[in-house]
Design a protein around this nucleic acid. Structure first.
Lengths: 328, 328
DNA sequence: TCGCCCACTTGACACGTTTCAATATCTGAA
DNA sequence: TTCAGATATTGAAACGTGTCAAGTGGGCGA
């Protein structure tokens, strides 16, 4: 490359990084050579020399869940303003793949990681941080003070959802979600439990699932539909919208009237909830703000400024009431 | 690192790559040093030395469209079996960002790219291929023989959808989609047009949109709802499910009966179509197979085996009829 | 004892870039 | 004319790894 333009590679480097420092004549020669060869700067070498990669990673448990892909979009947008590229990856809810990606990104020398995980992963992130790569936990409040996180107050969200159902006069309420080892799930259930205890005369049944997908929702829906009518719950709080959509689909198909027979509340307020069979009441967290805030927090760590905002950002959710809990 | 274990870096390298070639004693010393330092192989240097990165890229126009995120999942899964990591990126339907990502991935020395684009991008891919990085066009059939692609027969799909509406007896049909510069859109319209011409007594109105999102669908929906009833179409073919969902939502809210007043067909058969207000009739392409096939095609190029399958894979779509076109 | 082979280890080099000190060339003022 | 200073260019060093030829030493057979 440098030889084709008949200049030293030092000059080529200057051309690329400080074009003003190179004479118009060589500038031309180099430009011509670049075009001719279709030259692209080798990033591996560049990284090696500079010691930084200009990239950050976003690890999501499930890209096909709109909740996470919406966040991804916010992340990308904000990262672009910082001249950072984002590697999105999909752990498919598998801790093993999460680990593999963490390893890979560390080797890849990303400058920071945004990790949305369902598993307890803070220890791992602490190790990685010790080796110089900062991270932000997304969607799960960090236990440790040192670990920044961006999350929703899930206890409040759970309370909100359950209170709403109770205020509608429902008595036999089901909570669909799991596993309880997942922090977000446990928190939402905790909030819900508080509301139930306050009410006094309401029973709460917990229906466990493993994956929190539409498919899981359908399965629980079928199980409920198979029950004798008088043992069915009269309201359901689903731990996320995907589950709620699956439930809704099967319940409606089986002839149950929503919300008359069964009222339904979801969580996350994904875009498709609004256009579902019965538009879905849901607990909404500000998705876009999520991505933005996470990137800002990460960047403030990367640049070593003392972060202006508190390290653990907790958004307050809000309840969006739609047809699935209110007769039209 | 090497100094801590008191061995040469050559030995460390052997330990990492040919552990059998290093004595048990040093093996221990090195292992200890690795643990103590939390050593992770520097990927930049590794890449630089080896000249390959072990990664491929998947560029999608819109990660939040489930059609693309479902493909992403298939891609990941298949790539994992080849020991390849996948960088997913989101061009947000912007050609400029698409270009930026192509540059970045080339500099990153990915070993191959899967590109799902709405824009004519083959020239760009040809250049990149000339510099040694193979690619597979996803969702759009390549014009050039040399460019592998995985796509759906969109002309057939468009024909199918329109034929279905015509067979229902609909006469004033609208096609919602755009811009026509997008190959997929043009193909689907072409197929639809053929069905209309065959029928003879059916009129086709084309309603243009720019982004093919739920939001765009809602907008067109509002415009239609504002029309006097007798000038409204009695059936709509939306160029993708997102549009269809947006349309559906607004039309139903405005009191139109679907499918009685207006029948509606979408395209892609995303998961949420089935659980929408009125379950959506749609043209289905095998998403998962898509991702698998694309990775296989890419790998066969990377390894230089003559690819066993033909280079341009075209899947045949199938029509999934649901409530939005059939009274229950 | 000598020589040979084997197992293990080493050190130098290369990959493609940036940076930096050093050199070469030019400009304008004294 | 000379010299200080600016400007333009160069070459070497360094980043962290894998590879390879070369080296060390030990064991074993003759």
């Amino acid at each position: 490359m440098a030889t084709l333009a008949e200049v030293s590679n030092g000059t080529v480097s200057h051309y690329l990084n400080h074009p003003d420092r190179v004479s118009p004549e060589k500038r031309d020669r180099i430009k011509k050579a670049i075009d001719q060869l279709g030259f692209v700067r080798n990033n591996a070498a560049w990284q090696l020399r500079l010691g930084r990669s200009g990239t950050i990673a976003y690890i999501a448990p499930d890209v096909s869940n709109p909740f996470f892909s919406t966040i991804a979009e916010g992340v990308e947008q904000r990262a672009a303003t910082h001249n950072l590229a984002v590697f999105i990856s999909n752990s498919n809810r598998s801790r093993a793949r999460e680990d593999a990606y963490l390893d890979m990104f560390e080797a890849q020398q990303v400058q920071g990681m945004l990790v949305a995980s369902h598993d307890p992963i803070e220890d791992r992130l602490t190790q990685i941080r010790a080796r110089g790569i900062p991270s932000v936990l997304v969607g799960q409040r960090a236990m440790s003070e040192a670990q920044p996180s961006v999350s929703v107050d899930d206890v409040a969200g759970g309370y909100m959802a359950m209170k709403h159902l109770i205020d509608l006069g429902r008595k036999r309420i089901a909570f669909v979600g799991g596993p309880l080892a997942i922090r977000q799930v446990a928190d939402r259930l905790e909030g819900a439990g508080t509301a139930v205890r306050e009410a006094g005369d309401v029973t709460l049944e917990v229906l466990n699932v493993t994956n929190r997908t539409i498919t899981d929702g359908r399965e629980v829906g079928r199980a409920l539909a198979a029950r004798p009518v008088n043992t069915r719950p009269d309201a359901i709080f689903a731990v996320n919208d995907l589950l709620a959509l699956g439930l809704l689909q099967v319940l409606v198909a089986s002839g149950a009237r929503v919300p008359d027979d069964i009222a339904l509340v979801g969580y996350d307020d994904i875009e498709y909830g609004e256009s579902s069979i019965i538009p879905l009441t849901s607990v909404r967290a500000p998705h876009e703000g999520f991505g933005f805030a996470a990137v800002d927090l990460l960047v403030s760590q990367m640049t070593d400024e003392p972060p202006a905002t508190p390290k653990q950002l907790v958004f307050q959710p809000e309840l969006v009431v739609r047809a699935s809990t209110s007769a039209r």
